[in-house]
């Protein structure tokens, strides 16, 4: 079903385009997660959070 890389799917994207969207989303999620992780470490260290 994805054999044809040129096929335009109902969403208007081709397989290559879908992978591009996915790649950017994963990248954004990683950046967001990294920032959040850092923020939580700081919160744990500098505030009464977690005792």
């Amino acid at each position: 079903m994805t054999d044809d890389p040129k096929k335009v799917w109902p969403t208007g994207l081709t397989m290559a385009e879908a992978e591009e969207v996915q790649t950017q989303l994963v990248l954004g999620t990683r950046v967001f997660g990294g920032i959040a992780l850092l923020a939580h470490f700081l919160a744990a260290a500098a505030t009464p959070w977690l005792g």
Binding site: L13, M15, E17, A18, E19, L25
Partner: peptide, 17 residues
């Protein structure tokens, strides 16, 4: 990546937001 196939059936303009 098979995960990217979701965007073949779910419009990113809806799925991402």
């Amino acid at each position: 990546m098979n995960n990217s196939k979701i965007w073949l059936v779910v419009n990113p303009s809806l799925g991402v937001p």
